[in-house]
Design a protein around this nucleic acid. Sequence first.
DNA 1: GTTTGTTTGTATAAGCGTTAAACAAAATAA
DNA 2: TTATTTTGTTTAACGCTTATACAAACAAAC
Lengths: 402, 402
Amino acid sequence: MFTGDQEKVRIVNRSLILNALRLYAPISRAQLAYITGLTRGTVSNIVTILIEEGLVFEDELQGSKIGRPPILLGLRPDGGAVVGVEIGVDFISVLLTNFVAQTLWEIRVKTTSQSQTDIISQAEKYIDQALKIAKEKKLGPLGIGVGLPGLVNVRQGNLITAPNLHWKDVPLRLIWNQRFHLPVYIDNEANLAALGEYYFGIARNVDNFIYLSSDIGLGGGIVIGGRLFRGGHGYGGEIGHIQRDPQGELCGCGRVGCWETQVGPRPVLRRVKKEFQTHHDQMLLDACSGNLDNLTFDIVVQFALNGNSICRQAIDEVAVNLGMGIADLVNVFNPDLIVIGGAFIQAKEILHSTIEKTIFSNALQPSTENLKIEFSERDTEACVLGAVAVVLDDILREMAIS
Amino acid sequence: MFTGDQEKVRIVNRSLILNALRLYAPISRAQLAYITGLTRGTVSNIVTILIEEGLVFEDELQGSKIGRPPILLGLRPDGGAVVGVEIGVDFISVLLTNFVAQTLWEIRVKTTSQSQTDIISQAEKYIDQALKIAKEKKLGPLGIGVGLPGLVNVRQGNLITAPNLHWKDVPLRLIWNQRFHLPVYIDNEANLAALGEYYFGIARNVDNFIYLSSDIGLGGGIVIGGRLFRGGHGYGGEIGHIQRDPQGELCGCGRVGCWETQVGPRPVLRRVKKEFQTHHDQMLLDACSGNLDNLTFDIVVQFALNGNSICRQAIDEVAVNLGMGIADLVNVFNPDLIVIGGAFIQAKEILHSTIEKTIFSNALQPSTENLKIEFSERDTEACVLGAVAVVLDDILREMAIS
DNA sequence: GTTTGTTTGTATAAGCGTTAAACAAAATAA
DNA sequence: TTATTTTGTTTAACGCTTATACAAACAAAC
């Protein structure tokens, strides 16, 4: 019999099993063996340990209809608690989940200050609250995942710069390690949102995809071969600052014509306002209470949906620019799926066909063979869910640093 | 003692040792253990097998100056023979090397026909010659690596399309497998050239770099984490067709303003000819025997080096375009090194500083921290050497398919 | 009702490849 | 001379896997 003293069961096999459980539970040992390619004996041994550790759940239920009734396995919801945090440009979002990533508690608040100490201490307050709730539910905290709107050194756990927050060189992992005595994982918000879609959203089980989202900037997370692509030293994947028009507008990064300047709510508003000067539109002006400065992306989308041609054209133009840039990315990364998130979700009915057409007529043929274009399923949740996923990732498989 | 019946010595450790031997030979068992992180015992066992197999060479020589004199190890030059093949748009290049990639025989001939059967049978003739020489030298053939100027499915070993050759759907691996009864590895020429620089050229030991070369098209090979990056399904890395100017020229791929249209000998010639219409230059005209249609890239480079401002400006413009595109790639892939090959090597003195300046002032700061720009060391040899490297790669470590 | 076949889970021995530890050899330095 | 360092080998022990055998529980066929 398996004695239980073989503590160092191969980490990779253990991860294989945990990950298969995440995807296929409830499942029998035999099926688990089939999926992972291990023998039933090996699976049995590892599962024994996982049950002892309280990570895996065992239940005798109806499974296959022929043969001995299988003992079904799954990850234990009460295997532990995970905290996901997103620090946005003007909000903080904190999420507490159990071991199977079910939401136990969440909060999303607007922030007024942009001061580093203010925002961090406010976030700490919410994390404390989350940990308190975890304790009440008798769930051991497993770790904290944090998404930040800027350039992050994932290995060192530092925020390098966050232009929109005006932060620089913040060793957030160190700070929160000391504060909470838990593993802390820090990453860029777009990367985490990509992971969120990969684990819990539309990109489930798609091993090669690109997540794009635009609110203020244009962010992207690239998943290749089931792992986040970060380039050579972890600073890669900055797709928002690909130059797409040498005669374009000035970007915040100092360059001209970055993709970020062409795509997003801002360029849409700019285009509508410009067009308005030659084609006056009273209804649109009324919607802004008479002042075009009050124009928002929501209003433009609403008008476009109702057939307003100025708004429709502005959105179409951005859709073409988005599609053109995606075509380049498709040529380079050859993904199976493009997931579009952020502000664009509101306009998905208008955007979808234009984007798709642009991509398929501009990317090279073999790369587009199995390509699909979808919109985010988890929207504002994607990033915090991704933050949770990163923590689970470290337990379920090796850390997703390429 | 090690009994020798442990046939299935861990493949990964075996590869570790072979690869370390490639890089650091001649080296002692103890140093090998230090580098690979294995124990001296393990190294000893595996090396015993490698010597039995005839892959590794053992020699008692002066090494460390204190302690027992080490037995130095290295890959046996006579461990086997490898054939590297490059089929270019207008040439065929075949290289025969021994197990340590030293050239034994090589040939490079211009082709006149573009017919598929003609070129393939011509290449077969040279490969036969190479294999005959290998046999004469009593070296067992290990495999054939082939570089092609087009889109390749590496796993299936098919050429999908080669626009400049007008080839389509050629199952070259199958064809040559049946013809030569040897392992055949097929890949894009730029990918192989990148591998060639990685194993035997300027990018030795640089695990994250991008190789760019322009002759007719603009090709690129991307190495990330020590392996070729091919995107999700092997069709990725097509960086020549990134759109860099929506108002640019029409590209052969059907799109407008691809990077390929901005960078390379062709755009330089176009620019010089255009400039010539407004600024007549008798010396330049004389160099073309009175007809500007005879203008070649070589002539432009010569004139630029001698201070001719028309030629100089044309090259500078291309250098800026090249640098701008590289800046985008740097933002996305975050490499340590850019290697520039192909026609540009002739003009490296003029190009280098302009390219460097453009990249460093346009890419995001953290990505450029350790970035270097270099020119190819192996030039026309890079691709065939890379083809050899692919074959060795399969023996030294797992196949470099990401 | 019996037989046969299938699926499942467990137990055991055997195998592979590793590490740890001890040892010996050969050189230098004190 | 003695102590120290580096190197290479040998041995037992260990960890994890596979192969194999076995039994339980069910369905379908006869």
